[in-house]
Measured scan of single mutants.
Amino acid sequence: VTTYKLVINGKTLKGETTTKAVDAETSEKAFKQYANDNGVDGVWTYDDATKTFTVTEMV
C-alpha cells in the first residue's frame, strides 16, 4: 500500500489530499471521484516519482 497525493488547482477549490491505495490506477479512480464530487473538472497529470496527481481547471 502506497500513499498518493492529489493537488487541486481549481477555479473555486484549491488544496491537497492524500489516499492510500494498492496502485496508482486505484488512487486515480478515488481522486477523480473526489474531484467530481467537488465540482472540479480539469486536466490531469501524474508524477510517478512523487506519486502525485495534479488536476488543473482551465479558467
Rank of each mutant, 00 (worst) to 15 (best):
N36W: 14
V59G: 13
M58A: 12
T26M: 10
T2E: 11
D47T: 04
T52Y: 01
E28D: 04
D37G: 05
K32R: 15
G39A: 06
E25F: 11
K20W: 12
Y34D: 01
T56P: 00
E25P: 08
F31K: 00
L6A: 02
K20P: 06
D41T: 13
V22P: 13
M58H: 13
V7P: 00
F31C: 03
D37H: 08
T18H: 10
N38S: 08
I8H: 02
K5E: 03
L6E: 03
Y46W: 03
T45H: 10
D23Q: 03
K5M: 07
G39P: 01
K29W: 07
T50Y: 05
G42R: 00
G10F: 11
D48C: 06
V1H: 10
L13W: 15
T18E: 11
E25D: 10
Q33H: 06
T45Q: 08
G39K: 07
T2M: 11
T17P: 03
V43M: 09
T2V: 12
T54L: 05
L6Q: 02
L13N: 08
K11W: 11
V7M: 07
A35N: 03
E25N: 09
L13R: 05
E25S: 11
K14L: 07
K5W: 11
T26F: 05
Y34W: 15
T50A: 06
S27D: 01
V55F: 03
V59H: 13
T17S: 08
T2D: 10
F31N: 01
T2F: 14
N9F: 13
L13P: 04
N9W: 12
K51Y: 09
T3E: 14
T19Q: 09
D47P: 00
N9I: 14
T56K: 04
F53P: 00
A24K: 15
D37K: 10
T56G: 04
W44H: 00
F31W: 02
K14H: 10
G10E: 02
A24P: 10
L6W: 03
D48S: 10
A49P: 07
V59E: 14
A35K: 02
E57W: 07
V40G: 01
T26I: 06
N9C: 14
K14I: 09
V40L: 10
E28Y: 15
T12S: 09
A30M: 14
V55I: 10
L13M: 13
N38H: 15
T18N: 06
G42E: 01
N38D: 02
D37T: 07
T26N: 07
A30Y: 15
T56C: 06
A24N: 06
S27N: 00
A24M: 13
E16R: 05
W44E: 00
G39E: 06
K20L: 14
T17N: 05
N9H: 09
D47R: 02
E25H: 11
S27I: 08
L6K: 02
K20E: 14
G15K: 13
D37Y: 07
I8N: 00
A21Y: 05
T17Q: 09
N38L: 15
T17M: 15
S27F: 03
W44Y: 01
N9M: 11
V40E: 01
K29D: 04
T2L: 10
K20N: 13
T26Q: 12
D37E: 14
Q33C: 06
W44G: 00
S27W: 04
L13I: 13
V22D: 06
A30S: 09
V40P: 00
A30W: 15
D23M: 03
G42K: 01
A49H: 10
Q33G: 05
D23R: 04
Y34G: 00
E28G: 09
T19W: 12
N36M: 15
L6G: 02
G42C: 04
L6R: 00
Q33P: 00
M58C: 13
T52K: 02
M58W: 13
M58P: 11
V40A: 03
K29H: 08
T50H: 05
V22F: 12
D23E: 03
T52R: 02
T12E: 10
T12I: 11
V1K: 10
N9L: 13
D23C: 05
E28F: 15
D23G: 04
K5H: 12
V7L: 08
D37M: 12
V55H: 01
K32C: 05
K29S: 07
E16D: 06
V40T: 02
K20Q: 15
E16S: 11
V22R: 10
K20R: 12
K32D: 01
K14G: 06
D48W: 07
T56E: 07
V55M: 04
T12L: 12
Y34T: 03
G10H: 08
T54S: 05
E25A: 14
T3V: 14
T19P: 02
V43L: 11
A30E: 11
G10S: 12
T54M: 08
D41E: 13
A21S: 08
K20F: 13
L13V: 12
F53N: 00
Y4A: 02
A30V: 15
D41G: 08
T45C: 08
E25M: 12
K5R: 12
V7T: 05
A24G: 05
G15I: 15
K51D: 02
T19G: 05
V1C: 14
V1I: 12
Y46K: 01
Q33V: 09
T3N: 06
Y46L: 01
N36G: 08
V1T: 12
N9Q: 10
T52Q: 04
G10V: 12
V1Q: 12
A30D: 06
V55G: 00
D48K: 07
D37L: 11
D48V: 09
D47K: 02
D23H: 04
T52S: 04
V7K: 07
T45D: 08
G15R: 12
G15D: 09
K14E: 05
E16P: 04
M58E: 13
T56F: 07
E57R: 02
T52F: 01
T18Q: 10
D41Y: 14
T54G: 02
T17F: 15
K11Q: 12
A30Q: 12
K20T: 14
K29G: 05
M58D: 12
G15Q: 12
K29C: 08
W44T: 01
D47V: 04
E28R: 11
T52P: 00
E28P: 01
N38T: 06
D48F: 08
A49S: 13
T52V: 06
S27K: 01
K14T: 10
T12W: 13
T19D: 05
K32Q: 08
G39S: 06
D23L: 04
T3G: 04
L13T: 09
K32P: 01
A49C: 10
E57S: 06
V43G: 04
L6D: 03
G39C: 08
A35Y: 02
T52M: 04
A24L: 11
K5G: 03
V1W: 14
W44A: 00
V22G: 09
T54V: 06
T12D: 11
Y46R: 00
N38I: 15
V55W: 01
Q33Y: 05
D41A: 11
T2Y: 14
V1P: 10
V22K: 13
E16I: 12
E57C: 06
Y4C: 04
G39V: 03
A49E: 12
W44V: 01
S27G: 13
G42T: 02
A49K: 11
T54A: 04
T17A: 12
L13E: 07
D23A: 03
K32E: 03
T45G: 05
D47A: 03
K32G: 02
T12H: 14
G42I: 02
G15M: 15
V43W: 09
Y34S: 02
T18R: 05
T17R: 12
G10W: 05
K11A: 13
A24T: 09
N9P: 02
T18D: 05
Q33A: 10
W44P: 01
E28N: 04
T12V: 11
E16N: 08
G42S: 01
L13F: 15
T12M: 09
T45R: 06
D41W: 13
Y34L: 06
V59A: 12
K5L: 06
V55Q: 00
M58I: 14
A30K: 11
D23I: 02
A35T: 07
V1R: 07
V59L: 13
L13K: 08
T17G: 04
T2S: 11
L6N: 01
T26W: 06
T45A: 09
I8T: 03
T54P: 00
D41F: 14
V7E: 04
T26G: 06
T54Q: 05
V43C: 10
T2K: 10
A49L: 11
A21L: 03
